[in-house]
Simulated scan of single mutants.
Amino acid sequence: MTHNEVERTVATVPKSCDRQRGVAAVELALLLPMLVILALCAIDGARALQANIIITNIGREGANLAARGSIDLEDGSQDIIYAVMASAPPLNVNQQGMMYITRVMGVGTTRSVVLDQYRWDDAARNLGARKSTYQPTSRIYACGAWNSAGKCTSISTTSRPTAAVLTGKLDDGEIVYVVETFYKFDMLVNAFSFGKDSALPVFGPDLYSMSVF
């Protein structure tokens, strides 16, 4: 190889390296937004899974406590709710959570009726001068009026509303306690709201759990 050929070879190396670095920079610029979105989605999924596990566990514990029969729901429903909600951190259930306890009884073999229903009392959920505005509706029975103790007052002994979710699933006279737990989940990537419009969403802005004992 002559001296001139060596010089030409050496001169072309830096240009080739610069060109490769430029291509790599362009590829990184194109891929980086997608990588960031994928990372945020993975984080969202992990956070939603953790939150869903927590609300499922506290719902089961609430149903277990209510079904034991040692606590009168008329006076003790709020004690049960506060006890299980106290184990919910790191979730901010005071501002973004709700729980319903509903007693349902089977009538015949084709109908289930609501005996009574209780919710987390708004007045008792005060944080200083601020109240939670998160008020999802129970999927067992949508009560229209509540007293100061968190009991539904629109259910009468002469006209029991039907619990469609449990219709045909209870024996005649069988009584079960249904605990519903809701949590308003703050997503990092709001464009990916899986299950947002489904009947029982798992991942999305509103997490839901139903436990029956």
Rank of each mutant, 00 (worst) to 15 (best):
I37Y: 11
G59S: 13
T56G: 12
L30W: 03
Q50E: 08
A66P: 10
E27M: 04
S70T: 14
R47H: 00
A24D: 01
L35F: 15
A63W: 06
V23W: 03
R68F: 03
T56S: 14
R47F: 01
A48P: 04
N52V: 01
D72P: 00
A46C: 10
L35H: 04
I55P: 07
A25M: 14
A46P: 02
V26C: 00
A63D: 06
L28Y: 07
E74T: 12
L73R: 12
I54N: 02
A66V: 08
E61D: 13
E27G: 08
C41L: 06
A48H: 03
L28E: 06
I53F: 12
A51W: 01
A48F: 07
A48C: 04
N64G: 06
G76E: 06
G69T: 10
M34Q: 01
G76I: 06
A66I: 05
E61Q: 15
E74Y: 05
G45P: 03
L65F: 07
L28T: 07
A67Y: 10
D72Q: 07
L73A: 03
L65P: 02
I53P: 00
A66Q: 05
V26K: 00
G45I: 03
E74P: 04
G69C: 12
L32R: 00
A29E: 02
A48R: 04
I43G: 01
L32S: 11
E74F: 06
R47I: 01
I58G: 10
I71Q: 09
G59Y: 04
G76P: 12
P33Q: 07
L32A: 13
N52A: 09
A25E: 01
N52M: 09
Q50L: 13
A29C: 04
Q50T: 08
S70I: 10
G59I: 07
R47M: 13
D75S: 11
P33V: 05
L40D: 00
I55F: 07
I43W: 01
A29Y: 05
R60M: 09
P33G: 09
A24F: 07
A25L: 14
D44I: 05
D44P: 02
G69P: 08
A46D: 06
D44F: 02
G69E: 12
L31R: 00
A51D: 01
A67C: 00
L38D: 01
N57M: 07
N52Q: 14
V26R: 03
A48E: 08
L65Y: 12
